[in-house]
Structure formats: C-alpha cells, structure tokens
Simulated assay, not measured.
Amino acid sequence: MSTKSAALFDANRDRQIPLELYFPAQQHRCTRESPCSVAFLSQGYGLRHTDYSFIANALAASGYLVVAIQHDLPSDPAISKTGDLVANRTPMWRRGIENLRFVRDSLSRTYIGFDWPGLVLIGHSNGGDLSALAVQESPALAATLVTLDNRRYPLPRTPAVKVLSIRGSDFPADAGVLPTVEEAVAGTCIATIAGSRHNDMNDHGPTDLQSEINTLLLSFLEDGRCGA
C-alpha cells in the first residue's frame, strides 16, 4: 500500500480541497474491465482528514482506493452550536457535498480503474451528517453510506442505498436521525459499540475500538452483515 498527499482546486468556488489518498497494494489489478472499490472519508469537525488512517489502511488492505477529504479550512466560519442545528449547519454540509462531488468528478477522470458508481461514503460525526444529506439529495452519488455516530441529519430511508451507522454509547442521536423499527428498510444496519465514545472514533481513540469499527465496517461492505 502507498499514500499520497494532494490538493484539488475548485476554481468555481475558489477553494482548495486537501486530500490524502490511500492506494490498494495491488493497484495494477484495478482496471476499467475489473474495477476496484473506492471510498471517501469525511472527518468530524475539528479533526484532520488524516485522523482516520486506521480505517483507510484497513480498506486499502482490502483493495479499496480511499480518499480522505478535508472539508473544513481555517478560513471557514465556525460550526453553529445553538439554535436549529440542522438549518444552521446545512450551509456547511452543502459546502462539504460540493467537495464530495468535485473530488469524485476530478479523480474519476484520473483513476479509471475504480468503481465510481459504487462509491462508498464514510463520515464521522459532522462528516457523517454531510454524507447523509449528500445521499439523501443525490442517491446516485454513492451506493453505500457509512456513518460513525452522526447525530444531526437523518439517515436515508431508502433501499436504493445501503446504510451502516456505527453508534457510540455516550451521546444519543437527535430525534429522527435513526430509523424506527417501523421505518427500517433492507440494507440498513444500526450497530452500537458498548462503552464507546463519540470523540474516540478516530486515530486518537483506543485501538480496541478501532478494531471493532473496522470489523463492523468490513463485514458490512463484504457481505452486508449487520454486526461482527
């Protein structure tokens, strides 16, 4: 496996988008005729896009091209923490969605040996919220959504997109974020890790939690299994 630090420039928005790319070990086997999988990682607010290498490395070892995207820049307004959080944070999420689309459109022209229609979106906390909104608005953007304890924006309720949400144990999600028993749809998995903390779901958290997250993630991506 190898990694590459890069940045894309979206001229229409005058915006730099820092990236970290994690390549599969057998990248030469990724061809247009036999494409390899691709996943985008969106970081939690206040964290760096490189703070999820435990996920990126596990996916790259499983044959994925992983693109970690830095959505928040020092020049951006601070995240809203009061009032209607969904309404107040939607402009930030839409900025992230534009990043996702721009990165996908740009890299798909360069890395042709990958399954871009089967894109997997993975996001922690605020990164999970923006990814959920992206899939809700544009189901064709990705085939699978994985969130790590997103708490504000509702998960999609559609069988058109496979959904895994790995939940921490210290903070509840807002009302309506998680599907009820009546709303549950095929291909959606909600998995809570006992004793886990929202702020630990990154490289700075305990290694046993990282291992549990990767086990749930890889099991779901490989065969749709809900749980280890």
Rank of each mutant, 00 (worst) to 15 (best):
M1L: 06
M1Q: 05
S2V: 06
A7W: 01
A7S: 11
L8P: 00
L8E: 02
D10P: 02
D10K: 03
R13K: 05
D14N: 13
I17D: 01
L19P: 01
E20V: 06
Q27G: 01
R29D: 09
T31Y: 04
R32Q: 11
S34G: 07
S37D: 02
V38H: 02
A39H: 06
F40H: 09
L41K: 00
Q43C: 03
Q43F: 14
Q43R: 09
G46Q: 09
R48M: 14
R48W: 13
T50L: 00
F54Q: 02
F54E: 09
F54M: 06
F54G: 05
I55W: 02
A56M: 04
L59I: 11
A61S: 15
G63Y: 14
G63T: 13
Y64E: 10
L65I: 10
L65A: 11
V66N: 07
V67F: 11
Q70R: 08
D72K: 08
P74A: 13
A78V: 13
A78D: 15
I79L: 15
K81N: 10
G83N: 07
D84M: 03
L85Q: 14
T90Y: 11
R95W: 09
R95G: 08
I97D: 08
I97V: 15
E98C: 06
R101T: 14
V103Q: 02
S106H: 11
S106K: 12
L107I: 07
S108A: 11
R109D: 11
G113D: 07
G113E: 10
D115W: 05
W116R: 02
W116V: 05
W116L: 07
G118A: 07
L119W: 00
S125L: 05
G127V: 10
G128K: 02
D129M: 12
L133M: 15
L133F: 15
A134F: 04
A134R: 02
Q136E: 15
Q136I: 14
P139V: 14
P139Q: 13
A142L: 12
A143G: 05
A143L: 11
T144C: 05
L145A: 13
L145Y: 04
V146M: 00
T147D: 10
T147R: 09
L148Q: 01
L148P: 00
D149Q: 03
R151Q: 14
Y153F: 15
P154W: 14
L155Q: 02
A160F: 02
L164Y: 13
S165T: 14
S165Y: 05
R167N: 12
S169K: 02
D170V: 07
D170C: 08
A173P: 00
D174P: 00
A175E: 15
V177Y: 03
L178F: 14
L178T: 13
L178R: 06
L178K: 01
P179N: 03
E183M: 12
A184S: 12
A184D: 12
G187Y: 07
T192D: 10
A194I: 04
G195T: 04
R197L: 14
H198G: 04
H198P: 03
N199Y: 05
D203F: 05
H204W: 10
G205T: 12
P206N: 12
Q210V: 04
S211Y: 08
T215H: 13
T215V: 06
L218M: 12
S219T: 12
F220G: 03
E222W: 06
G224H: 03
C226M: 00
G227W: 03
